[in-house]
Nucleic acid binder design. Structure first.
Lengths: 112, 112
DNA sequence: AATGATACATAATATTATTATGCATAAGAA
DNA sequence: TTCTTATGCATAATAATATTATGTATCATT
């Protein structure tokens, strides 16, 4: 697990990117996907995720659809066209940020 | 300029790394060095920097020395041995975090 | 004389996360 | 069958960390 402050500010980027890859996801699914993709190194807490999803909806980056699974409820999130643009934007910005930080922190290149 | 939320959580790492490279720096010098190293892409605000420096001192990662330059005052910060370890730790952690994020966000390798 | 740069610092506010709590269904273990 | 864990949503209290604004003061340049 990374010290929590590193993850700060990247949550929106992560969520937007995942949605852009999978078309449609629900909150809990996002937390599990991030756990899986990062081998448990990044854990998204619900208290951070749900407010973020609500904010993305309010900003018009996602639309929601509520689906009943048996007696349980899932809220699916789908990117809007505006949200797709935003996803690309945020990922590109983060990629540049990484390069800047690697330079400043003198982090050497690794094959990846 | 990067959207501010990206920088969040990296300030301590940046400061510790710069101090580990330069032995001794004062606050204003740090802001200028970061501006210079990042070609103005990262701007450290004083309201963020000074509390961080004070925190580092409180935690025993830096010691301070006040130097008079004419009638003006500079407060120089120097890493303690504990601070040097911490600097390495933080940079390594950030490097790993970058790799994890690159994988998750599907950011392709660039020569750097 | 005024402006911008240098140099420190803190207070008010905003943002974003953690932690705790709450509700409810479903599945599996004891 | 009862208890625990997992699934699934959500919000409130709190904490951490940053922005923005303000304050003080010196020094150099226009």
């Amino acid at each position: 697990m990374y010290s929590s402050e590193l993850i700060k500010g990247t949550l929106k980027t992560i969520v937007l990117k995942l949605l852009s890859q999978t078309n449609q996801m629900y909150g809990y699914e996002i937390t599990q996907k991030v756990k899986e993709l990062t081998s448990d190194r990044i854990q998204i807490t619900e208290g951070a995720l749900y407010p973020t999803l609500h904010a993305l909806e309010k900003e018009g980056f996602v639309t929601t659809e509520i689906v009943n699974i048996g007696k349980r409820v899932r809220k699916y999130y789908t990117l809007t066209p505006k949200g797709k643009l935003k996803a690309t934007e945020k990922v590109n910005e983060f990629a540049e940020f990484i390069d800047t930080m690697k330079f400043m922190l003198d982090i050497k290149h690794q094959i990846s």
